[in-house]
Write a protein that binds this DNA or RNA. Sequence first.
DNA 1: TGTACATCAGTGAACGCGCGTTCACTGATGTAC
DNA 2: TGTACATCAGTGAACGCGCGTTCACTGATGTAC
Lengths: 220, 220
Amino acid sequence: MTEAGATKTPRERYRAQVRTEVKEHAWEQIATAGASALSLNAIAKRMGMSGPALYRYFAGRDELITELVTDAYRSLAGTFRAASGAGADVAALGHALRGWALEDPQRYLLIYGTPVPGYHAPDDVTAISSEIMATLLDACAALPRDSEDSAATPLDAHLEDHRDWADGHPARPAALRRALAFWTRLHGVLSLELSGHFTGMGIDPAQLFAAELDALSRPD
Amino acid sequence: MTEAGATKTPRERYRAQVRTEVKEHAWEQIATAGASALSLNAIAKRMGMSGPALYRYFAGRDELITELVTDAYRSLAGTFRAASGAGADVAALGHALRGWALEDPQRYLLIYGTPVPGYHAPDDVTAISSEIMATLLDACAALPRDSEDSAATPLDAHLEDHRDWADGHPARPAALRRALAFWTRLHGVLSLELSGHFTGMGIDPAQLFAAELDALSRPD
DNA sequence: TGTACATCAGTGAACGCGCGTTCACTGATGTAC
DNA sequence: TGTACATCAGTGAACGCGCGTTCACTGATGTAC
């Protein structure tokens, strides 16, 4: 993060510690009132400091949010990396995703929910989400092959033309298709679950999620 | 809405007109800055009136939001009703849903996006979303039957136990399953599309949506 | 048709709040000799 | 080990802003006789 391999001075240690403490309070606040209600002053007050003090640690509100978003992406990437450590397994990635999302719903929603108005994600995240995608593509490519290619769909053709996002990953069209389905379908269930859209219905989102993941894990 | 069949006095007409004008400005504002930035004062200013004037028409900010949410649900229910008019067709409902969502993304996100912190939906909407669900279930029940019931899944068992949400609709388990998949899968694509998560990837969300809808429209 | 009264839309001032951010300043911590 | 200086964390006051909401009031619109 800071100088590579540099020994940290006590002041650097202290700075880093306060920064993470600020971020922890920020997450708590987001969990309570949503990302759009993030307030530097409120964080400072809860830390027992006066508002302007935080400007020693963050250039402003936007930089804080940027840090939180980047941290969230990094955390998800790490979770995926860990989950796929013992062999690329779509089901394992799915369960890891759900666990990660439920562990801190607002962190998930900060990335995949309705975007914070007027805020644009930093460039760092594209690299991180590329890594996430690569892990997912590995797992999809490792799936047993479909019962003889099951005829190229119109979507396959389109994906062949636009596979920049796969970042050079040598995956079959079917794997690309499945990775996207993994992403959109699981997000569909998770997003509705986290937004509380199942609560009134008596349905257990876990079962829905499991069913979708099951369909994704086995050949067509 | 007002007295059933009552002739409207000029004043009632005027009130109704101003109310809808306020709501129109509210939608514009939501489209620009998101639902959490909705401000009565800002709306009043843009209408050329002073802030407190709006309290003649709405009890407060919360009532305005409630109205907007209810209107959004009603609008979607109407769209579904119209789309299924000429026979219940899953594909038609899917296209109607996407058209409705793209017509006003923030209206879609107000309902299905990250919930506005501290706001809870009114009771009216449960009736409306029941109607929406019923339309969808009709369409799913009308689909050609699967190749001999394809073995009851664990999800089927769970759905049998919790079909209150289906509101007494006499649908086969497979139809319940499909209705939920319709909802979660299409929401997955739409939500990511509206949040701009495909823009950097060069993928056409319409094709993804079409592929998912296609899979939903044909037997397993 | 005209007058007296009630209704109600809209205004402007005010209250209290919290926000992001700047600035000059104090006091503690670290560094150099 | 001690002194002189630089660095930097944190404070408090201040600026300007917009918010939701209340209140007493003006002026226009409708109603009753």
